[in-house]
Simulated assay, not measured.
Amino acid sequence: MQEGNLIMNSAVSILTETEVHPNSVSPMLMVRGVEKIYPNGTHALQRFDLDIQRGEIISLLGPSGCGKSTLLKMFADLEQPSAGQVRWNGKTDMQSQCKMAMVFQEATLMPWANIQDNVRLPLDLRHVAKSASNEKVAEALTSVGLGKFGASFPKELSGGMQMRASLARALVTEPDLLLMDEPFGALDEFTRHRLDSDIRTLWSERDLTVVFVTHSIYEAVFLSSRVIVMGARPGRVVADISIEGPEYRDEHFRTSDIFMKQCAHLSEILEQASGGEHHG
């Protein structure tokens, strides 16, 4: 997919209007018998079943090519299953059932526009007047630590700051469901840790449901309430692991015994799912 399309998809995917009823008994996301076979014969997903409840923060973890990003695009209604069904709050129409935002592997910012205008893009696509959107843009930028950088251009920011701007653009329409496709994989470890902490904070403060694709066992354990381990292609659920840990997680949690034990356990499962490949 070309960068221009990514920019448009990341904005268009959040243009949903109807609020979700907080007392809904249905899972936020429900996957039943989903298969995905591409026209070239690639079998990406096989008999996939999964429930994600409102307010969970879930990581999808698995070897390269196991269908993690394909599944995430189905959650965003950007990809259709070959068989089976995806439901949002019990319904098959995502647009009427949840407010969704997606953050891609790259920041996909418009280089000719300043950060404030990049973040404003989803509101512009909804024809929201600037006078009405200024407050939302300022709030989104402040929430990701970029309150003083609205007038800057993407080339003037570090990779981590650009990804923060992409995250602000996703948050500006106040989504219920945040989908993240390995957004921090290209960043240095220190920046990645800080952004992981920020995601946990935003998840808690904004009552988000988050689905996060990652190759990192350590990132998955730090972020998640549950980790879904996927097997090598065709992708399927190998393990569904609840993660133990406090709601507020910091560097002390990263060095705790419970953190290291859960990482070791996931490493064993992932090695089996990967056919012996190593993934950190």
Rank of each mutant, 00 (worst) to 15 (best):
E268I: 12
L202Y: 02
M28T: 08
T18A: 15
V20R: 14
L60E: 05
L157C: 09
L6V: 15
T142L: 14
D257R: 14
M161P: 04
Q116H: 09
E182V: 03
E135V: 09
V229M: 02
E182M: 05
L123E: 03
A170D: 04
M180I: 03
K136E: 08
L187E: 01
I37V: 15
A11N: 05
M74V: 07
Y218V: 12
P175H: 04
K68V: 10
I57A: 13
S256A: 15
N5M: 12
T255V: 11
P154T: 08
H43C: 13
E271I: 13
I228Y: 00
S204W: 14
S267D: 13
N9Q: 15
V227Q: 00
T255R: 09
V119G: 04
L141E: 05
E251K: 07
L157I: 09
R254S: 04
K68D: 12
L179K: 05
E135M: 09
I243R: 00
R236S: 14
A151S: 10
H193W: 07
A232W: 03
P154G: 08
G65H: 07
S216Q: 01
E156V: 07
I269A: 12
S59Y: 07
G235I: 03
L179F: 04
S242P: 13
P27L: 04
E35D: 15
P122F: 05
V137M: 08
A151Q: 09
F153R: 10
L167H: 01
L6D: 08
N9P: 01
D250P: 02
I228K: 00
L61A: 06
Q53Y: 08
I217M: 02
S216D: 04
G245P: 00
D176S: 15
K130A: 10
L179N: 02
L78I: 14
S204R: 15
Q272E: 14
I241K: 14
S152P: 03
Q95H: 10
M230T: 01
S26E: 13
D93L: 14
D250K: 01
G276N: 11
A232E: 11
D196E: 14
D188C: 06
R194G: 10
E219W: 00
G41N: 13
V25D: 10
Q46Y: 13
R233H: 03
A132R: 11
L202A: 02
L223D: 00
P122W: 03
V137D: 05
S131T: 10
T92N: 06
S166T: 05
N23I: 01
K36N: 03
I115E: 00
N118W: 05
P27R: 04
E251D: 15
A140Q: 10
F212P: 02
R236C: 08
G90T: 07
G150R: 04
E139M: 12
D77C: 11
G276Y: 12
V12L: 14
L141H: 07
A76R: 04
F259Y: 12
F212W: 03
D240T: 02
K261S: 12
N134S: 14
P234R: 03
F190C: 04
G150P: 06
E56T: 05
V119A: 06
T201R: 10
W112A: 13
G84D: 10
D117N: 10
K36E: 04
R87G: 06
P39L: 12
R200G: 01
D77I: 06
L208P: 00
T42R: 08
E174P: 00
S274F: 13
H127Y: 09
Q162A: 09
V213F: 00
I115A: 06
K99R: 15
P63L: 07
